[in-house]
Design a protein around this nucleic acid. Structure first.
Lengths: 197, 197
DNA sequence: CACAATAAGAAACGAAGCGTATCTAGGGAG
DNA sequence: CTCCCTAGATACGCTTCGTTTCTTATTGTG
């Protein structure tokens, strides 16, 4: 639109590119995102992008990084099941839109580019959930709903894994019915089993 | 190599194409599979393929269909944990090689092609695991290791989902250590929780 | 202040792969 | 024996990729 008066560089330019990439993601999704389109939207050109990132996956991961959601607060509904339902719903809402498609797309590329695999793993593992979960469990223990448990890291990741699965394979937004199933048939029993064992 | 003496048609031709596609999958993986390569390997040409399948994903799903693994036998090691470990290992072995990469690739396309999503879902849901699992659980109940449980369908799918997750995100073959973790930290507690509840 | 180093941006490239259209000729059905 | 379906060959236009080449704005160094 506005004439470009000056050349951007460094940080400023980089942010412009990442914003453009994010906008393209929202608008077209991962599969349809092209480097050319991002360059055009950012008002720059391909080489500028390729000088910074090795390919689409790296670019998208970087854009994603800048738009990371804030750390979730632990819901407090008064009972364990309610808290879990709320937490799962929160995760499901975040998996909506182009997120699942993007993750699936990046997963596909991860096989051909180990660095991408590494980045993706870090991104998905750093899921800021542990805090919320342990708060929920601590409160449940206080109320006497569940003996105190110390969750293995893997179990902390399960909610996100479960919902990602649903979101990617379901092809439709994760419904409340599905969320209830995940909580009642899987996660609550799992917690009870861990607490009892 | 050999001169083509006669034109193949119908079933014969179709099988030749699907075999070629499968071979390409094994050799190059999903992302690098091209219709041209499949046509060349099958000794035919692209239009012949496009007359039958709408695209790469459909072709690959069809090829996969023809090479479905046989129904797994329920391992019988004498105790529940051993059986589960064996079963998980079996699943992990099947997720090795190009299978995970293929699934990830098809997942990516599923978002743009609902029919593909549908086919993929059917393929993954029809997992021939329910039988083995309930046999294992029945035996565990006989031995008194676990009260009898009736697994919700979702819980039946969990082992495959867990391992697929590992295989896709791990970027490396699923190790025995990981399998033990999945069994000890997740699936056994889950079963106990279900049996107790 | 001048000038050298750096990096942005434009343009164009060859290589792939896509999916389609057009044509020919093989071989089964009647 | 003829007709018709369709296998198979070829080639097209298109898109995207990732790179190369070149010009020129900007920075910061002396």
């Amino acid at each position: 639109m506005a004439e470009r008066k000056s050349r951007r560089r460094g940080e400023e330019l980089e942010r412009a590119i990442l914003d453009a990439a994010w906008a393209e993601l929202l608008e077209s999704g991962y599969a349809a995102l092209t480097i050319d389109a991002v360059a055009a939207r950012a008002g720059t050109s391909k080489p500028v992008i390729y000088r910074r990132w090795a390919g689409r996956a790296e670019l998208v991961l970087a854009a994603w990084r800048q738009h990371l959601p804030v750390r979730p607060m632990a819901p407090d509904t008064g009972d364990l099941r309610g808290d879990l339902l709320a937490l799962f719903r929160l995760i499901a809402r975040r998996a909506e839109g182009m997120m699942s498609e993007t993750i699936a797309g990046v997963m596909g590329e991860a096989f051909r580019h180990p660095e991408v695999a590494q980045l993706l793993r870090e991104r998905l593992r750093s899921a800021p959930l542990g805090g919320a979960l342990s708060k929920i469990l601590a409160r449940a223990a206080d109320r006497g709903e569940l003996p105190p448990v110390d969750l293995p890291a893997r179990v902390t990741r399960i909610p996100i894994d479960l919902i990602r699965n649903e979101a990617i394979l379901g092809g439709a937004p994760v419904t409340d019915a599905t969320i209830s199933e995940l909580v009642d048939d899987v996660y609550l029993p799992l917690l009870r089993g861990l607490a009892a064992g």
